[in-house]
């Protein structure tokens, strides 16, 4: 007696194959959702904002009249913010990654530090804003300065760079580490002359991606009290400043419909900067990805 009815099986097969095919296209459709949204967002924004992308837009401060509003102050402020955030974040994150990968013993404290870092990665940016408000703005009396914002941003993007740097350091093969140690180089010499140079492309990619997240972050800036309208640019790290996302946010809230186009123009500038940064990161990653 046959346990499996072969006729039944082949009758059902065509149905199973059809279902397979249908679902395949549904999955494809879902995959395209992201693409479609991205395209819509970009087209909608560009159509809306391109009229305002004049040279004047880049050289003038914000204004209450849409036709004379510009992003000069915000652009310079964002540059300041990044220039101060980057070194702080890099020293803290790369130092942490080096310690965890090269020096840390296997004990409970180190384990706790690792878990803690992945938890920090999931803390909402508003909470980092509250930390910055209390610690840097009020307690350290830095006010709503470039430095206060940069410290807050540094702590926020720290986990991202730490994880990227750790992965990059880990991917350096132990054989070249042995080669260096075997020639009588000390551990620190090995790290600075062999491991870090080999890990640098991955670390830089991580840094750029983290900074591009920081450039677009708005919530922590609002919470530490960065002004929405500012008619001067900072001259030092203790001056207050404006930033691109803050400027965009303040324009979004204005009722005048013409400002919608000004906002779109500001968004085009922000997205263009992000696009450039991401391209550089992807270029570095592809160029150096398969070396070992």
């Amino acid at each position: 007696m046959e346990l499996i009815n072969k006729q039944e099986v082949s009758k059902k097969l065509s149905g199973r194959l059809l279902l397979n095919k249908v679902l395949k296209y549904i999955f494809l459709l879902f995959t395209l959702v992201g693409l479609v949204v991205l395209a819509t967002l970009l087209i909608d924004t560009v159509l809306d904002g391109w009229r305002y992308l004049t040279p004047d837009f880049f050289t003038s401060y914000s204004s209450s009249r849409p036709e004379s509003a510009g992003i000069y102050g915000a652009l310079i402020g964002t540059l300041w913010l990044m220039a101060v955030t980057a070194p702080i974040a890099i020293i803290l994150s790369v130092g942490t990654a080096l310690y965890l990968e090269e020096y840390a013993p296997k004990n409970r404290l180190v384990n706790f530090i690792k878990v803690n870092i992945s938890n920090l990665a999931g803390v909402p940016s508003v909470v980092f804003g509250l930390l910055g408000l209390t610690l840097f703005v009020r307690l350290m009396e830095l006010d709503s300065s470039v430095l206060a914002a940069a410290l807050t941003m540094s702590l926020m993007i720290l986990p991202v760079i730490v994880v990227a740097s750790q992965e990059s350091i880990r991917s350096v093969p132990s054989t070249i580490r042995e080669a260096s140690i075997g020639m009588g180089a000390t551990k620190w010499q090995t790290i600075t002359r062999v491991i870090l140079p080999a890990a640098v492309p991955g670390i830089i990619t991580g840094i750029i991606l983290a900074l591009s997240r920081a450039i677009g972050e708005t919530a922590p800036l609002i919470i530490i009290g960065i002004p929405t309208i500012l008619l001067f640019t900072p001259t030092g790290v203790l001056d207050t400043f404006s930033a691109l996302p803050m400027q965009i946010y303040s324009w979004v809230k204005l009722p005048n419909p013409e400002f919608q186009s000004v906002t779109a123009a500001g968004i085009i500038v922000l997205l263009f900067i992000l696009f450039l940064m991401n391209s550089v990161a992807i270029y570095i990653r592809n160029k150096y990805s398969k070396r070992f």
Binding site: S180, M183, V194
Partner: peptide, 20 residues
């Protein structure tokens, strides 16, 4: 150990040049 390894060199199983 650094002194020792300066006087006693080593060549490894797999070629392991630095990426330099």
């Amino acid at each position: 150990v650094e002194d020792l390894r300066t006087k006693v060199g080593m060549v490894f199983q797999k070629p392991n040049p630095f990426p330099k």
